[in-house]
Amino acid sequence: MLSKRIIACLDVRDGQVVKGVNFEGLRSAGDPAELARRYNLEGIDELVILDITATLEARRALAETIRAVARELFIPLAVGGGIRTEDDAAAAVEAGADKVSLNTAALATPSLITTIAERYGSQAVVVAIDAKTDGDRFAVYSRSGSTAAHRDAVEWAREAESRGAGELLLTSIDRDGTKIGFDCAMTAAVSSAVSIPVIASGGAGGLDHFVDVFTTGRADAALAASIFHYAETSVRSLKEHLKQRGIPVRL
């Protein structure tokens, strides 16, 4: 049976892992390669490096950081943040990324999804969707959550899939860094609307939050940052907890 994936996210700025709350108030959490090594030993299923300031400050994803992390890891590695063109994607892949995550650029130029999928395959294209609850809908934001994209998350998820995205990384801006749990309603709405895997992100604070997002949230994978960085929860103890609750994991 296909395992539910646990993914650790390294939000990187200036070569250091940082983490904020609701996309703001950043504090340092260490060296990316060192954290990646630790998570790998603990049994993480996948890593995401997000160059969180790349879009706002017009910088490109840090090839050096990617290389340092990819050097000794033999698990999937996705890279996002500031990937705007096919060349940016190629640079990330060349540095060792297996997947690139598109967000702002995909909203501005949806055909970029297809271009990169045709070059590297759909499995290499993750479309990241940052969204907030807005009444009974989910409003998409771009530019690191700062700009309303005037798109509905479910509708944008369907379009991204039809354009060639291989996976969706769905982040709740409301929940990001709050540790009050994933937005299961939003995750279930998106996951039910597409046939590609949905990675839930934003709000992980305790072990049962993961149980919730894999059951009521219908997530295929869950991503977290803070709870792993500050060693509040080990990947291994999380997976053992999930297994006890009948959720298939890789142990």
Partner: peptide, 13 residues
């Protein structure tokens, strides 16, 4: 709840 998604992406035994 046991929906099979295609593509098959992830760790399997």
């Amino acid at each position: 709840d046991t929906r099979i998604k295609i593509p098959h992406v992830g760790w399997n035994s």
